[in-house]
């Protein structure tokens, strides 16, 4: 790791000030992606601005029929939260399946979505459920927030502070783990929203989270899960690597979608 400075500002305002003063400063919360990146010398920030302990980012509460999760909440805290388990059990289950127990004790929802790793689990739930991302500057719809692999709409000096999830009727997240790394080769968040519309969001394709609109329309018409086999799923959403070809990933995505919908029913 290249040497770097470190500060743990007491307020969000102070953290923003540090980011504004130094273009090469990097936010860190749980650091469960950032630390391996730094150790491998794939990044060289001048300093880390640690926001993991800011009280403003560390709450889970209901807002109307939905819930708000502070950006600094760890995966373990989201998985164990009575509020999340009661309102969005599929989201609690997703959080409880990220990485391993040690990672879940440090990694945060804000860090996960701001990083937008194409194989990260959280972006699928945020997109499928039509969640909104609150930053220090504005509120962004999920559709506007995610911008492809490792890319988001976040501007320099903008910090995710919370994610607002609306209520949904029923949902299920399933992933097919790479047998060696245990990372999601493909993950599918399937949901029937409060409006009765269906949503299918897929991660692991390689180009970032995306919705399978054709399948959503198929389900909204009242057609069954079995018929999904013939519903088109654009191959351009998938890339191949040593773990699987684009074709294979697309096949797995269809299988996992079917399983998620079957579990949801």
């Amino acid at each position: 790791m290249y040497d770097l400075g470190y500060s743990r500002p007491a307020t969000l305002a102070k953290a923003l000030e540090l980011l504004q003063q130094d273009d090469l400063a990097q936010l860190v919360s749980g650091g469960q992606t950032l630390m391996p990146v730094l150790r491998a010398r794939l990044a060289a920030p001048s300093q880390l601005v640690d926001i993991a302990r800011l009280d403003d980012l560390r709450q889970i509460c209901t807002i109307g029929a939905g819930i708000e999760i502070g950006a600094g909440m760890t995966h373990a805290e989201v998985a164990a939260s009575p509020v999340v388990r009661a309102h969005l059990p599929a989201l609690a289950a997703l959080a409880g399946g990220i990485g391993d127990a040690q990672i879940r004790h440090r990694g945060t929802i804000g860090g996960s979505i701001a990083n937008n790793d194409p194989a990260a689990c959280y972006p699928s739930a945020v997109l499928a459920l039509g969640a909104r991302v609150q930053t220090n500057l504005r509120m962004l719809d999920a559709e506007a927030f995610f911008a492809g692999m490792f890319a988001t709409a976040l501007e320099p000096g903008e910090i995710v502070t919370a994610v607002h999830f609306p209520a949904c009727a029923v949902a299920c997240y399933l992933k097919f783990r790479n047998p060696a790394s245990r990372f999601a080769l493909v993950g599918v968040f399937a949901a029937r929203l409060a409006s009765d519309e269906h949503r299918i969001a897929i991660i692991g394709g390689g180009n970032g989270v995306f919705r399978w609109h054709e399948a959503e329309r198929h389900l909204d018409r009242g057609a069954g899960v079995d018929g999904l086999d013939t519903v088109p799923l654009d191959l351009a959403n998938f890339t191949g690597d040593i773990h699987g070809s684009a074709d294979y990933r697309r096949h797995v995505a269809k299988v996992i979608t079917r399983r998620a919908l079957t579990q949801m029913a």
Binding site: Y6, R8, G31, M35, P36, R39, A52, Q102, I103, R106
Partner: peptide
């Protein structure tokens, strides 16, 4: 936690 994935200062 994994002590290789957290800085001492953190």
């Amino acid at each position: 936690v994994k002590s290789c994935t957290i800085l001492a200062v953190q």
